[in-house]
Design a binder for these strands. Sequence first.
DNA 1: CGTATTTGACCTGCGC
DNA 2: GCGCAGGTCAAATACG
Length: 457
Amino acid sequence: MLFFGSINGGTSNNEGDKENQGQDMVKEMDFLSGSTRSSSNNHHASVDENNDLDDDEHLQLQVGTGLNLQMGRDLGGADKSMVDDEALSRKSYNNLTIEDKLFNNKEAIEEAGKSHRMRQFLGLGDAAHQVSSIDEGDGDGEEESMPNSCDNYSNSNEEHSNKSDERGDHSAKMARKEALLERSWGSKNTTSTSSNMQMPRVGVQAPTGEAVEQSHEATMRRARVSVRARSEASMISDGCQWRKYGQKMAKGNPCPRAYYRCTMGTACPVRKQVQRCAEDRSILITTYEGQHNHPLPNAAVTMATTTSAAASMLVSGSMSSPMGGLINPPIFSQPTTLPGLPSLATISASAPFPTITLDLTRPHQHPQGNTNMPVGNLDGPGLVGPMQQALWQALCGVDSAQVGPNKDAISMIKAALTEPSIATALAAAISSIMKGNVDGSENANDKNLGLSNFVGN
DNA sequence: CGTATTTGACCTGCGC
DNA sequence: GCGCAGGTCAAATACG
């Protein structure tokens, strides 16, 4: 499962921090309370030791608030800080039941709608299914590894490592070489799926059984979700633990690219890359890849669902769609905006990997003629502007450029929402927005209901 | 002293 | 085959 989330000081001491040398504290923004707090820009493990926010209310509040992003320069977040929801999530996670650990948008939407359509909406999407599987596995004390090609890699790689320790230096080198060869994700011995990383194609004779599964797994492994957001911090804090394993200078960008891998699971294959935008260094680009093979804390689940669904959307994009070819390879062959959400997501299957980019850097705009946007405070720290606006416009048919419903957008979004993977992605995104901004207000359920009704139309 | 980060080396894939 | 770029490993180093 992929995931993304909030930005804070993060765990690293990479280039981003170096740029801010002299700052002992990382300025962070708290979407929830608006209160200010500075967290030491040290290892996350030490942060939650001093955190006492473990009562139910705070647990509720932290859920789904992963995206503590600076949505624009106008937020004035420099003096804001945010509660370390990553730390909170880890602290609280062990106390939660299995049901608690089910991802939040599913709960919210099911409570609100309870329609069969919405169950399909949640249950048929790849991401939703995966999340459920993981969580159930956790509940049984049996961590169900995702049927993921990279899991195979990771496990086999670990095996190689263990063996190499026993065999001495020469054998260790050989083992490492074997592991490296195997690491190329199917390039040599395994199926050819992962190395190619081409989108499945409509019209091509469909492979069957294991081949299909392997292809899907490999593609999911390589499908990427990129999140662009403004942040002073060095990396985004998304509820998971990350360990930096490398840093490289990328061509065409003076800022180094940092590589992280998830350390919440023993052999979790999820990795992410963090890099500042060359054109605008206030923009942090985080790219997620892979699926978690372990349960996630609440703070990470919703965002994980979003990115997982986004990746799933990429993978399933070639499948037959009721949208009349809205999502298909010809479109994926070049960057494509999500219909009705041009400011939100760009989909690209161009080399090297299919990638969906969520751009959260667009300046916020108030949609005209709409006073019911589901935000607690449009101008306050709870703002999640562009993403929220786009979704809200899509759902309500209100176009910021015109008063009244945008019927074309409505029809397009309606069509899009009949695609389970897209619907799942949007549901997760919407849920995260609701949780992050209007939790505590009765609007949240209303909006979920609205989505349910919308899908049902 | 244990853990996380840094960084140079090494690998693969790709284009020429 | 060679060079380049992206990605990863692991020893060295830093840090708490």
